[in-house]
Amino acid sequence: MMRAKAILRNPPLLTFLLVALVWLIAGLSLRGFGAYGHLRYLLELAAVIGIAAAGQTLVVLMGGIDLSVGAVITVTAILLPLLSPAWDPTGLVGVALVLAIAVGIGLLNGAGATFLQVPPIIMTLAMATFLQGMLVLVAGGSAVTVQNPAVLLLGQSRPLGVPAGVVLWILVSACMLLLIHRMPIGARFLALGANPLAARLSGVSTTRNTLILYALSGFFAGLAGLLLLGMNRQGYVGIGDPYLLTSIAAVVLGGTSILGGRGTYAGTIPGAILLVTTTALITVVNASPGWRSIMFGSLILALLMISGREARR
């Protein structure tokens, strides 16, 4: 009984158990779901969400929200082919340039939130709208094809049978857990999220930490964009759109308080897996895309109501 209560009070573990349960039931009842290839595919899809949600987790922990994640993913996916110079055989120059742009967008978000005191929800939404307009001007309506070797390697290779994207996600997860739980800055983010005034009076700089935070969020969204582009081989306007809601949903499914100050990336990991599993199960149902969208939206809402219960403050 005590143990059951401890599990209920540990949202990351709870989400993880939920994923295991869904996989078990689906694997036993649906032909092909439990195949190694299918599960690997699910993890590969979850990696994109998980990496995009890494920055989102940090932002939410500090009591903010980043609505420009989807737009940043699209920006990196479309700009990478344009910014990869032909003389660079590795493709790393293009990768560095695009990630620098993603970080720059994040810094602008942070600057708006801290210097201009624009609420993050407005600041990042305005940024997303602005970026979408820019992309239409730059790319027109056409899709771009990627030839950058580094990005293709990231999206297509499978060292030791594990997709490179999943390897990248494992690396990102390790860094995130280290940052939140073992570095001073993680404790500062949490303190700022739970009580910004007390944190500020304790010598925690709001400005500095807000800038770092949104820069990181931009960086991780950019990374997710590169992975998505490598997996897709093509970039187009709107490619990142589905990842805005899913990045927030993964964070909240993992038990991180949407109000800030409480949570961990350890919950976002199973949260991302749960989301792609849900999508996969809906795909199995023979329904039109419209109905699938409606089902997906309702399911996310239901899942959030189950796992995102939180005491009002």
């Binding site: 949490l190 005034l197 007390a198 100050g261 403050r313």
Partner: peptide, 9 residues
């Protein structure tokens, strides 16, 4: 409660 401490921590 509001300025000195991060109560839930």
């Amino acid at each position: 409660k509001h300025e000195g401490l991060v109560l839930p921590h």
